[in-house]
Design a protein around this nucleic acid. Sequence first.
DNA 1: TAGACGTGGCG
DNA 2: TCGCCAAGTCT
Length: 377
Amino acid sequence: MGHLKTMSSRASNRKLTPSQRNRVRSITTPLNEWYAVRHRDLPWRENQDPYRVWISEIMLQQTQVKTVIPYYERFMGRFPTVVSLSEADEDEVLEYWAGLGYYSRGRNLRVAAQQVVRDHGGALPNDEAGLRSLPGIGEYTAAAIGSIAFDHAVPVIDGNVERVLARYLTLEGDPKKGDSNTLLREAARIALPNEQPGDHNQAMMELGATVCTPRAPGCGDCPIASGCRANKLGRPEAFPPPRQRRKPEIQHWLAAVIVTPTGIVVRRAAEDAPFLKTQWGVPLWPVDDAPDPRQAATKLRALVRSEFDFELGRASYQAEIKHSITYRSLRVHVVTIPASTANEQTAPRTVQVGDAWKLPGLHRKIVECAARQSTNN
DNA sequence: TAGACGTGGCG
DNA sequence: TCGCCAAGTCT
């Protein structure tokens, strides 16, 4: 009956053992006492207003707290209510999102606000199905809003929670899949108290973000280190296992900073552009290899002439900028070129250097690079 | 469902 | 400098 034993021991990996369950239960009290004292004062923690919680959770997707804070303050200043966001132009919402990345988050936020006004009387739905029906809200964000804003006793599982529990239980597999995922979910549910579930969920994430970090975790400062198996093994960094990543591809691009009397020319990227689709920015063209400065200037001049109706001045090479977008390692060769519009009817949209913050990070870097160079000249 | 999506912090 | 990874969602 060897195969039966194998089957049963494999099946048992899908449930926490009684002793594991006890260890997980012992997380709750010390963790929440730690959080009460050590939590960071963050702008979205001033109150439980569902709109504020929602905006913060969307911004925090794949984005660190330190990065989010200034964007959050600026965004809330301009769009303080669901209605104000629902009435905004997409371009303006994206201006306030520019630099944060993952721009579908900003587009979805506006559409969702319109849905909330139209279908829910302007108040975020306070049930999971209602929240998940909104674009941009998936399993994690619905649970985060539900627990933090509405006191629903549902656990959240984000990258932090995955790491904390994978270490605590020394889960060997990918926490997003298979048995490790099943065990993780059971553990997260068991650790969750019925009182103040939002604080508990934030405590789990806060611990992951500030103590149980991916590299160099601070086990000496961890309130649950005594029950943590990875700490006992002395190699907490080994959990969870590293993820498989697509190999970076180096790509060379030419960027045109076309300087007209009214500002720098920007245009909308095509819907089928390889990245930053439909986003405003300076014209970009792919090139096969790294050009030398003279080639870059000459080629760029020809490209600008082929697509715009300008009187062009002398093209001058500025610098190479490095910028990564997902798996693409971009090498962007920045060329400036003075221009005057030959035909007022076709006057393009322009931006001032001071407004470069309204552009995606890549284009902001390009404009600021050109401005810096020309100041030096 | 695995891959795409932006950017910055940090060791 | 460079590579890993982040309070995920969508298709």
